[in-house]
Every structure is written in C-alpha cells, then in structure tokens.
Design a protein around this nucleic acid. Structure first.
Lengths: 161, 161
DNA sequence: TCTTAATATTTAAGTATCTTAAAATTGCAG
DNA sequence: CTGCAATTTTAAGATACTTAAATATTAAGA
C-alpha cells in the first residue's frame, strides 16, 4: 500500500528527509516569528497569544485557557495580558456568572496595524502553493492537520506533566 | 493546470484553509518548542541555536553566523554560547587564521541526554507519515523544502532591515 | 448558614534573557 | 605603521518568565 511501486530504501530515505525538514522548519519558525513579532514592537509570546485569542472557536477565551494552550504559567499570562491591554490590543471582561473568571476579547481595530506585516509574510508562503494542484493542496492540508493535532497533544502532555 | 478538474471556488477554499493552518502551525510550534526546551532544562533559543550548529553544513560555525541565522544580536549570541559552554554542550575554538573569529563546536557526548526527548516528540510526528504513499511523502518534502526556503529568506530580510 | 475546600486570577520577588552601546582584539589597506 | 573595518565580548538596563503566596469567588458538606 504505502510502499507500492517503490523500494523500501526509498521510503526510509523519504522519512529521514522529512525528519530533517521537520527539525529545520521548527527552528526557522521559532526564530522567524521572534523576529516578526519584534519588528511589530511585540515579542513572539505576545503575538502568539493574540493568535490563540483570535483563532479560538470557543465562546470566550479565559486566562486559564491561554495558560493551558500556551504551556505558560498563569503568572506569565497575567503579565502578557497586562502588556496587551495597555497597548489596547485586548480587553479584560469579568465573567458576570463566575466572577473569578476573566474573559479576554481582542480589540480588532487596535490589531489592524499589525495585519500588513503578517499579510506580507503570509503572501510569500502563498506563492509556493501556486505550483501545486488542488488535489496536492488537499493532501498538504491533510498533512498539516495531522501535524497540528500532534503538536497540540504533545504540548498538552508536557503541560500536564 | 493547477485548477484542472475543479472549480475556482474550491481552490480558494483550499488556499484559505492552508493560510489558517500555517498560522496555527507557527503558533503551536513556538509554544511547543518553548515547552520542550524547558523540559530539557533549556530555553527555546538555546535549543534552536544548538540545532543550527548541528545542522550547519559549513566547515565551521561562528558566533556571527549564528547571529545572522537566528536574527538575534551578537550580544545575545555571546550569552547563549556562555550558557551552552558552561553546560558543556559546545566548545569555543579561536580561529588560528583570523583570531577575531570564534568557531563553535557541538560536544555530542554532552548533547546525548537531550536526544531521547526530541526522539520521542519526533516519533509522534513520524506516525502521521505512515498513512501516506511514497509519492505523497515526496510531495510533502517538496512543500516543506519550499516553505523552509521562504522562512529563511523572510528572516534574512527582517534581520538585514 | 457557616465552614472548608477548590478554582481562577493576580501579585511579588527573584531569575533569566535579550537589547543597545561601548570596548577589546585582530585584520587589512593605503 | 596608521587608521579603519570586522568579530566578539562586556556592561548596563529593560523585558519576560517562574515560583510561591495572596486575593477573590464559587461550591459543597455539616
């Protein structure tokens, strides 16, 4: 099935290459996103927390949820939210039903100036995709979805331990 | 060519989805690798500098080269190298030909204890690949190679500006 | 109802990490 | 051999994160 029409050695070579590429990608991602954030006057942690807030499909984001998702301590999250609130990027809203909790809301107007930076970088990645067929893009989607799942669960493991 | 056998709307949907996934992946990568590094008693920057040193195909890694590749200042690199040297992970070796320069060498024996942590995480990603054919893996390689190129050049742009 | 335990977030203090700017050392060109 | 350029380190200061304790609120049991 997965090895049809090819030698076992070829598959081993592919797997090694993908291991290498995964390593390379993670390193470049870490450094690149540090640099992007800095060029926007923030740091990687802050921008990625903003991303978590924006992409969250839940009704409301809480500080505790951010802590779990990011793997950072709740103390760190409080500082991050302080910084983001001071700049007007987010708002803290006390939950009226459970007054211990704080809901975080992104202030989209305040985040607008950051968008061009990310659009520019994102566009560079989109150019790559032009050379792939729809079927191939679908495959890449599938690969990334799986990868994302693994990342999520591996982080969850580390956080809980 | 790239749209054969499919509607334009389908392609647009795929591209949007890939945009979303790229965003998601970068965020998860940043947080996950921070957590992995911490679980190994280091930080993301240090571990990723180690990776740069290990993966470098050049004859010799220098502090300046690390600064360029990482987007960090030379001052930061000095501190990082201090930390890594203190733990025995690397060695500084003065270039005898140009005594301003310092070559960095990984001390593999000292890094060995870190390997299992990364192998465990890496193995989780490798499981994903089982369900793809060789041809599909080749495609994913191609995608990652291109993506890696873009990451590299985008970081280089930011560093130089 | 009162008390106690649990949950969610913040605060405080300490550590570490990074940046900027200047210094130290070495190389190179005129 | 003089002065400028290149490479790394140092020093000082700002930022960012962790741990542990504190605060505020909810929930549950007697």
């Amino acid at each position: 099935m997965s090895t049809k029409k090819s030698k076992a050695g070829e598959r081993a070579r592919l797997l090694r290459r993908l291991w290498e590429l995964g390593r390379e990608m993670s390193t470049q991602t870490v450094f690149l996103h540090q640099a992007i954030a800095q060029s926007a006057g923030l740091n990687a942690t802050d921008t990625k927390c903003i991303d978590l807030i924006l992409r969250c499909d839940k009704e409301h984001v809480t500080a505790g949820w951010l802590s779990q998702q990011s793997g950072l301590t709740t103390g760190a999250i409080t500082h991050i939210l302080d910084r983001l609130e001071k700049r007007g990027h987010i708002e803290r809203i006390r939950d009226t039903e459970d007054r211990r909790r704080v809901f975080i809301q992104a202030r989209h107007e305040s985040l607008k100036p950051l968008i061009p930076k990310y659009e520019a970088i994102g566009a560079a990645y989109m150019v790559i995709l032009e050379e792939f067929t729809d079927a191939e893009l679908g495959l890449i989607c599938r690969y990334l979805e799986k990868t994302s799942e693994v990342s999520k669960s591996e982080l969850a493991k580390l956080v809980s331990s």
